[in-house]
Write a protein that binds this DNA or RNA. Structure first.
Lengths: 336, 336
DNA sequence: GAGCGCAGCGAAAACGATTAAGTGCTAATA
DNA sequence: TATTAGCACTTAATCGTTTTCGCTGCGCTC
């Protein structure tokens, strides 16, 4: 491994000067700087991130936290899109990313300890159980963090506009003439609460009274669970004309249940999804859904985290909401 | 930050002893060891990964390489499943994972340099253009590597059993009575070549002669492209009775094209996919496909990489093939 | 010619951990 | 009794960088 010392010997200057030259310090002559850079290149010098991190207390490494327990694992479209854009933007800004987890090997660490151990300059909390004390500890620590889809007090967060998304969808189906709208939702997280509240509020604004049995709990990304709720809805004496699903994938569970009952979409039943994953636009009929701005969210998360890392003193926590867009699709029929 | 020095002061022993006690070295008395561990715990000591890496030349960090250029980005089911299992297994074995890329910030590095810079103990090459000189350089370097779905000479690799997978599917549809089988394949990578060769070989073994126009190039994970090829197949004077798609997602493009022609699956046309992503088993009809053992592959990759890292001298490169399984589904009809 | 400022460079001390070599000490062996 | 062996610990060097503080000469001013 070629080090700064090798360069200093080859150039006949001190290690201090080499370091300064390589980092563009002002007190080294242009000629020396060039000579140093040239020999560094010809020797194939690479800085040593560990030594740097040790000395500077900065690792140029940011942690990403995906706790799969909540079912928000990497392999869900929405999260992998976020991960990909966090990665791309971080790298653009000169930071690597490392996954942060509980329990590394036989050492048991919590998230905060893990991040400290790797001296992460900051952490993106992408998907987690926000009630978990370990998450709360991390968010309350001195380590810069950005959370996605949840706001801790006086910390920076990026939010998908769930309120607006649901409102947009409700108004969309309302305008198509639907009045009996059912809402199948996921587990009761902060996100779900917002969506449900928005659903209720928008319905109220539109003068719709939604019977309680139209609002049904299911599980995100679980077609089986939403299939069961669909069946329950179909068993009602007064069936809805339109069903909201917790996400695009859940819709598929509903779809097969509808088909079992001989109902076709959208002729006999209108449906909408949520997320706008690529798949939803490849299906026939194209799903009516709301596309969350995952890549924008990931990019903003990385950007704000780095800004916070590099300006710790002047940093003011922000909550940014990233808008999505309605994908009209064709699973909502014009009625009445 | 509490360091080993703080502990040594609190305990009245030298830093060396603290280090040894914490790492379970033999030449420290049980009592001292306990005292050190206790004060370490009470002080909230955390080792510093950077200092460790610097001194030991081992970072307990493994690099993961996903170059999105090839379309094998993180957000495809198959790859995110692999990523997730690589992550889980690595963490179980005490290693963190960091993404390796070209170009970190304004520094331009190739993969090898990046891995060196972060002193990764090894790299999992999960998805990449294996012709890329930068990849070749990495694979030829002294850094332990494991590649997925590609074998470099005398390096360890994990392969999906593409040959067997395609053979299984061909025999499956053959037994259902199909004789006119079309094969839409993805870009001509090593994997594609294997699949195509297996298709040809199995057909030959079964005495089927496949007209050249039944074999059509498309693009992986691109429903549009496979839709076009489907259209071309339907335009033939002698249509196939069964179509192979490059992957499950591509099938959806074919499906919508078939529907446009008023053909229903599997009544008028049988189809099979590849990958066996969860979605494929939620669709109605359930897709007949071959499920690749992504999580097994990721797990094996991590396991073998760590084994290689920890036994560099006695390491013998291996090629492991991970079997998948047929998901019969119901998109292949019984004919003849 | 004394005094001053400045540009360019170097010496040396960190950062936090590991580890080879060495130091006393007690107890067992020859 | 002298030697050895082993235990439990310490000393000090080391990994590759960064950074503070000084030092040296040079040119300029008064």
């Amino acid at each position: 491994m070629v080090t700064i010392t090798d360069i200093s010997k080859a150039c006949g200057v001190s290690r201090a000067t080499v370091s300064k030259a390589l980092n563009g310090a002002s007190d080294v002559s242009p000629e020396t700087a060039k000579r140093v850079r040239d020999t560094a290149a010809s020797l194939g010098y690479l800085p040593n991130a560990a030594a740097r991190a040790l000395k500077m207390g900065r690792s140029y490494n940011i942690g990403v936290l995906f706790s799969d327990a909540t079912g928000g694992g990497i392999s869900h479209e929405y999260f992998s899109r976020i991960l990909e854009s966090v990665k791309a933007e971080s790298e653009r800004l000169g930071y690597d990313i490392t996954f942060i987890s509980k329990d590394l090997g036989r050492q048991s660490m919590d998230y905060y300890e893990h991040a400290k151990y790797r001296s992460c300059d900051g952490v993106v909390i992408a998907s987690a159980d926000f009630q978990d004390p370990a998450i709360i500890r991390l968010a309350a620590s001195e380590i810069p963090t950005v959370t996605l889809d949840y706001s801790f007090d006086s910390r920076t967060s990026i939010l998908s506009d769930n309120v607006r998304g649901v409102e947009t969808l409700v108004r969309f189906v309302y305008e198509k003439g639907h009045r009996k709208i059912a809402f199948i939702h996921g587990e009761m997280t902060a996100v779900t609460q917002k969506r449900l509240a928005s659903f209720r509020k928008t319905c109220a604004e539109l003068g719709l009274s939604i019977p309680p049995e139209y609002i049904r709990p299911a599980i995100y990304h679980d077609p089986r669970s939403s299939g069961l709720e669909t069946r329950a809805l179909l068993a009602l004496s007064e069936r809805p004309t339109c069903i909201f699903y917790p996400d695009d994938l859940s819709f598929l569970g509903g779809l097969s249940e509808l088909e079992k009952h001989g109902l076709s979409v959208p002729k006999d039943m209108s449906v909408v999804g949520y997320d706008g994953i690529p798949l939803s636009q490849v299906l026939r009929p194209r799903l009516s859904t709301y596309r969350q701005g995952g890549e924008r969210m990931g990019k903003e998360a990385a950007r704000l985290l780095v800004e916070q890392i590099e300006n710790p003193d002047t940093w003011i926590p922000q909550q940014i909401t990233v808008e999505g867009e309605l994908l009209p699709g064709s699973t909502v029929s014009e009625i009445g």
